[in-house]
């Protein structure tokens, strides 16, 4: 079994191309997870465009089958879908998931953004076979991988996903304002060095992950004016990862105002925080174009 994770978009809110963001990338949220021949795509931000081109190149004419899981339908997580070239090829098949019985919200919104008012190609013109699929209880096997979905705190709601296969676990948890779960949030903002205690249900969902890919949009300083905006302090994510015994933590959904230098400073602060309590945990900034193998 080979499990690969590749980052195609690590930016939040809006794409931010340019020299100041070239190292970590300016494409919005998109992560590819491959377990042997099974393909999962988490979110369809602008990074989905380049993933699509790469899939077509790798496929060499063979049909592509993929499972698309969208954390939520905010623009930065769906805007790449119309530019995902495999959806224009008739041999390909994609499954777009809802996580409750009858939940077709994502499917409707994806198709809705491809209407003539917004986009010159209508959803009905797509050549690939595109199914609405469901995990009606929020969890279940998909193509040999056990997938769970967990609701998160974000304006309009969002989902985290965990993927387990043959003893390996990857969690994708973006757009979750973890800090709103803190009983003592105000105190933790006055004393950011103090450990932050997160609900057991969140820790359990992430427990033992070989890789946690999590939204860490804000620094401690930035968050002071962003409470309620739907994204956490990166340092709060560290505390969740430590409590859950995560082996590797990839901080993603970098704020559009953060340059590469700013991202590195944010991660440095996270590493200092992690080193005190979980020195073995690897903490890094998710970076476009990086692929990990969880052997």
């Amino acid at each position: 079994m080979a499990l690969f994770v590749k980052f195609w978009g690590t930016r939040g809110s809006i794409p931010t191309p340019g020299p100041a963001t070239s190292r970590y990338g300016g494409n919005t949220a998109c992560v590819e997870i491959r377990v042997d021949d099974s393909l999962f795509i988490c979110d369809g931000g602008t990074g989905l465009r380049e993933l699509g081109l790469d899939l077509m190149k790798r496929a060499r004419g063979r049909p592509i089958v993929g499972h698309l899981l969208f954390s939520h339908p905010h623009w930065d997580h769906i805007q790449g879908f119309p530019f995902f070239s495999p959806i224009y090829q008739p041999a390909n098949t994609f499954h777009i998931y809802g996580f409750a019985r009858g939940d077709q919200r994502i499917f409707r919104l994806l198709s809705g953004q491809m209407r003539s008012d917004y986009f010159p190609v209508d959803f009905s013109e797509l050549s690939a076979t595109i199914h609405h699929a469901e995990l009606p209880t929020g969890q279940g096997p998909i193509d040999g991988v056990y997938v769970r979905a967990m609701p998160q705190l974000h304006p309009g709601g969002s989902w985290a996903f965990s993927f387990e296969a043959q003893g390996k676990k990857v969690v994708y948890a973006t757009d979750h304002e973890l800090d709103l779960h803190l009983d003592d949030r105000e105190k933790s903002m006055r004393d950011p060095a103090a450990p932050r205690v997160l609900p057991g249900s969140l820790v359990d969902f992430v427990a033992g992950a070989d890789l946690l890919i999590a939204d860490g949009q804000y620094t401690d300083e930035e968050y002071k004016t962003k409470v309620g905006w739907g994204h956490p302090r990166a340092t709060t994510v560290v505390d969740l990862a430590v409590a859950a015994g995560v082996k590797q933590l990839a901080i993603t959904h970098h704020d559009p105002m953060q340059t590469d230098v700013d991202v590195e400073k944010k991660i440095a602060a996270c590493r200092v925080r992690a080193a005190a309590r979980a020195p073995e945990m690897v903490v890094f900034a998710a970076r476009e174009g990086v692929e990990l193998k969880l052997a």
């Binding site: 690969f4 690897v282 890094f284 970076r287 174009g289 990086v290 692929e291 990990l292 193998k293």
Partner: peptide
Amino acid sequence: PEWVCTDLDSSNGIYLNGVRIHSAVLR
């Protein structure tokens, strides 16, 4: 215009800026 490094199933792996990777677009 870019360069990509890929691990050829080596024993000791490739660490990019301290993180073990399988492949990466380099900067």
